[in-house]
Design a protein around this nucleic acid. Sequence first.
DNA 1: ACACTGACCTGCGAGC
DNA 2: TGCTCGCAGGTCAGTG
Length: 268
Amino acid sequence: MPELPEVETVVRTLESKIENKEIIQVRVLWPGIIEGSAAAFSKRLEGQHFRIFSRRGKYLLFYMDDVLLVSHLRMEGKYYLQNDDEPVSKHIHVIFQFKNHQQLRYSDTRKFGRMTLLAKDTDLLHFHNLGPEPFSDAFNANDVYRYCHSRKTPLKSVLLDQSFVAGIGNIYADEICFACHIRPGRSCAGLTHRECEMIVSETRRILQEAIAAGGTTIRTYTSSLGVTGRFQLKCMVHEQKHCRICGSDIKMKRIGGRSSYYCSNCQK
DNA sequence: ACACTGACCTGCGAGC
DNA sequence: TGCTCGCAGGTCAGTG
């Protein structure tokens, strides 16, 4: 499941492969991926070049000449750079044709991902009600403390709430809770200021390490263009059987509709 | 205003 | 062996 580190990896990989390439044609094989009219989407992108590559939360941002292409991979979205004579697998839903017979292909087994076109000057600070980026000053212990004390939801649910902080998904939410020695189901209302400081610093540390490792490859997720992350080797609790610190059995519980892994000995 | 649930999808594994 | 069923997950619309 692509979370912030995976999206960051995809953005940087694509930047190195397709920067300044011109789209000469777009084929949408599954219109549900495109928000709005697929025909208008395709027409608008013809003749546009991939200029600047960026990210906001889990959204990929491609600044073209006159338009902003926003892509969300959701669970299984991937990009591949292939030649146009290679067979098109059944999970390819959007094809961007370049010159020299190259194609950028969007693959998505579950068809959950979305693409949309926006004006280049769209305000991304308030885009989809997204909260602060984890590495920005806007994500800090004082604001986290204030936010948490105005509600009673489990810490895990808060970490997954994209309007709280942008980019954290199920895997990293479990890892952050573990690193802070807090059970994912604990109400965020009772967090101390010291714990909020720890949530901020551990979130940054874990995401930074995951980016350095090229993201996480777990279940069906591999990042684009054959790049495989290595962060799953460092997961302390997510999908683990035994705690890597104390050896206790890792417990699994559904919190906010998500499977959540924790060590009942190390996390209070 | 906040919190929870279901829909969107398909592949996979468990159970019969 | 072959079938059905439930689960996985991010986001948003709908409901309480």
